Amino acid sequence: MKKFLLLTLTLLFYHALFAQNIQVSGVCIASPVTLTQTGQENGKPLYQGVGTVNGNAGVGIAIFWDPNENLWFLAYNGQPYFSSPANTSVPPGTASTNFSWSTVAGQTCTGASPLSVTGNVALWVTFGSIDAHVKGDNLHVNWTTEKEVNNDHFEVEASTDGEQFVTIGTLKSKAENGNSDITLNYEWTGKAGMSLSVLPYLAFVLILLLFVRRKKTMLLATVAISFVAFIQVSCKKDKDSITDAENYYIRIAQIDKDGTKTYSKVVRVNGE
Rank of each mutant, 00 (worst) to 15 (best):
L11D: 04
L11H: 02
Y14S: 07
A16N: 13
L17V: 02
A19P: 03
N21F: 12
G26M: 14
G26I: 14
Q37T: 11
T38L: 07
E41C: 01
K44C: 03
V53I: 14
G58W: 10
I61P: 08
I63F: 01
I63V: 12
E69S: 14
Y81K: 11
Y81E: 11
S83K: 15
S84F: 00
P85K: 01
T88W: 03
G93S: 05
T94K: 01
T94Q: 02
T97Q: 12
T97N: 14
T108W: 12
A112C: 06
S113A: 15
L115F: 01
L115C: 05
T118I: 13
G119E: 10
G119N: 04
N120G: 09
S129F: 10
D131P: 05
H133M: 08
V134Q: 14
D137A: 07
L139Y: 05
E146H: 09
D152S: 15
A158K: 08
A158H: 02
E163N: 14
Q164I: 10
F165Y: 13
I168R: 06
K174C: 06
A175Q: 02
G190V: 00
A192L: 12
S197F: 05
P200V: 04
L202S: 03
A203I: 10
A203R: 10
V205Y: 10
L210A: 08
F211C: 07
R214F: 10
K216L: 11
M218Y: 11
L219A: 13
L219K: 12
S226L: 15
A229Y: 13
K237H: 10
S241W: 03
A245D: 13
N247S: 10
Y248S: 10
Y248R: 14
Y249D: 02
Q254L: 00
G259A: 00
T260H: 10
K261F: 05
T262N: 08
K265A: 02
V269M: 13
G271V: 01
